[in-house]
Design a protein around this nucleic acid. Sequence first.
DNA 1: TCCCTACCGTGATG
DNA 2: GTACATCACGGTAGGGA
Length: 821
Amino acid sequence: MAEINFIPLEYDYFDWQGRNYARIIGRDDKGHRVLMIDLFEPHLYAILKPNLSEKQIQELIKKIEKIKIESGSRTTKIEKIKVEEKNFLGKPVKALKIYVTNFKDAHQVADKLDFPEIEARREYDLSFSTKYIIEKNLVPLGWYKVTGEILNNSQEFGGIDSQFDVDICIFAEKIEKAEEKAFKPKILAFDIEADEFELGKSEILMISLASENFKKVLTWKHCPAKQEFVECFKNEEEMLEKFVEYIKKQSPDILTGYFSDGFDLPYLRARAQKLGIKLSLGVDNSQPVFARGRIPSASISGIIHIDLFRFIETVYSQYLQSETLGLNEVASELLGEGKKDFEFKKSDKIKQHEWRDFFEYNLQDSILTLKLAEKFWPDMFEFSKILQEPLFEITRDSMSSHVENYLIHNLERYNEIAEKRPIHQEIGERQAKEKYEGAFVFQPTPGLYEDICVFDFTSMHASIIVSFNISKSTLLEGRQKNSYETPEFELDGKKEKFYFTKQKGFFPALLEEVVQKRKKYKKEYAEDKNPIKKARSNAYKLLANATYGYLGFFGARYYCREAAASTLAFVRKFTQDSMDRIKEQGYKIIFSDTDSIGFQLSGKTQKQTLDFLKKLNSELPGIMELDLEDFYKRGLFVSKRMTEAGAKKKYALIDEKGKIKIRGFETVRRDWCNLARKLQSEILELILKEGNEKKALELAKKTIINLKERKVNREQIMIRTQLKKPISEYKSITPHVIAATKMKEAGMPIDIGMSIEYFIAETRKTKKLVREKVKLSDEKGEYNIEYYLEHQILPAVENIFDVFEVNIHEISEGSRQKKLF
DNA sequence: TCCCTACCGTGATG
DNA sequence: GTACATCACGGTAGGGA
């Protein structure tokens, strides 16, 4: 019997003699790689109809015990059945906990449980690792004292030890929580370069690897004069073999790439297949396994493969300024360091001396990826700890999964059985439902305003769900005593009110914890600015903000349209009520959107306004809170194009320190050309800083003249639009679809989600449609002056000048004769 | 062929 | 399929004059 301190990292399972065993890879506190084996008895629940007699239950159990599933070579049987008092959707139920010998057949066992005594079958659709983690309470990245038999060099489990390249192999008998220790994973980043983007189409030219003390580029195509980090091979095969060998030697906990799920690993697989070699990267020498999805997920046994791009995309993209999520932009923003300059060419066109740069470029990509992984490690760590799911999963899961994982891993405290995932048909029905009414947006009056104050509700949706106990399980059939009543609102054409019990439901209760923890860690971070605290606070914030969306998401286990619609009814009510109170006080409302209200101080002081805010807060129910967002010196609001009506979701504010906040304007939209965006943002800045339009007008005139004199460079006029679906699915053939088609014809890779770049060129007069003037950046042609004037520059600035009753259109016409200026 | 408007498509706000 | 509804605006599709 031995005892080790163990931190679990990667979860999987195997069958042995008709039973399931978890096989978990992690480290001990001395840094040894550990394989822990643990018997796991998977189970599912059959929720019984109420009022069954003891005899009926016993007879049912006898029937269930006879269930057998034969699938291929394996037979799954019922191991044992327990009768338990549980809760389901907040209500007490009697349920059978049915243990099956093989997890893989839980679904089929559930299918056979169609007895009249059974009300519902549940928990057969949770993943193995989720079930295991809950049942054994062995949470990823926690420390545990594991007592058990060491199986090194043993023949147990068919000699499993010899199949795995680990230092310690232990068969767990007892697992106890141990004291938390610091853990620093060994991270290895990699990146490949090839001539073609199409997977496997061309040879892999080079592969770079980077960990803390190891930097290397493997290549074969061109062997340079000394470049110490470059290692040269005879051919691609040898290079790939060495790549596998280096990964084994480095023995990382985490192998990371940037878009490596979608590119590097599938490419490596395709090349290995073509060359007839094995990519035995796993600690059991298995090859990477690809799970299907929008982007495949590549897993390597015993090593956590993390595609950083995916984690950043789902969790952090909303907080990034970068216009694309490419490695260069993201690294530049977060690390202050970008890719190396290197102009891509096909390898046969690369000159002798340029190879050096190419190798450096390739290595830099791995180094950036490594640095990003280190930067995001606290975030990944916290997500994994909070959601209690392994790193591989949390770096790929969607926000809805994150919310769901948080719920599912905490149900036990409420003695709750987990709700099932909706089946295909239910998803269809949910999606077919009409949309429900959203938040309220106040229509502003165009103008330049001074002395503005903005209030906003903190985590408004979450605080409403908590304060009014809103969820699927707390929704009542109709009005009842001791319940919360929603405001009256329209749903599916009917005026409705909904009621939620005051008896706390697990869903709002768990959300309340999330909100409280967010508050706590935000405060802790303010006092001690360390990255772990920041990551923790941020993870809870993201979780709180995604929970409302989860309620209305068709794929959610705890989907509840009435609850989502009710939440929004409260959102509208509290924002409207607060606006009324602010108006009563003598302030003038300027704008409002969902949970924020902007108004003019109208002669009142900031102190008076803050006192008033306190009063408003004292009147709010539950955990709801109205907060000061900021005071602003000026704010600009414009009309919708070609109308007098004020535009919603479009404004620019300047605070007392001169910091500018621009929302909704073309400046912040990635699908406008830089020329228009830059001009607009400079104009907004001049107007907000100066308080008038004079200087801004001069700038506009100068830009128009520049444009007409063809002095604008190519980069400034490129228009970028994302391709959101396959070219053939577009009903409307827009300029970006034409541009994408042209790219495809030129042999460039076209993928969904790609940013398509083009400009509008001068063409013969017969071509009327914009799409007929589309050219790619490498095509010859001059930019279309009229288009950029009438469709980019003027639309971007005319509404702004309208506020000052300046007609930029007329001025622009006049500028045909430059003398006017 | 021209003109108008409904609809498609993207990317914003919160 | 992978959190929600609301909004602005360019551009095309397609019918009617």
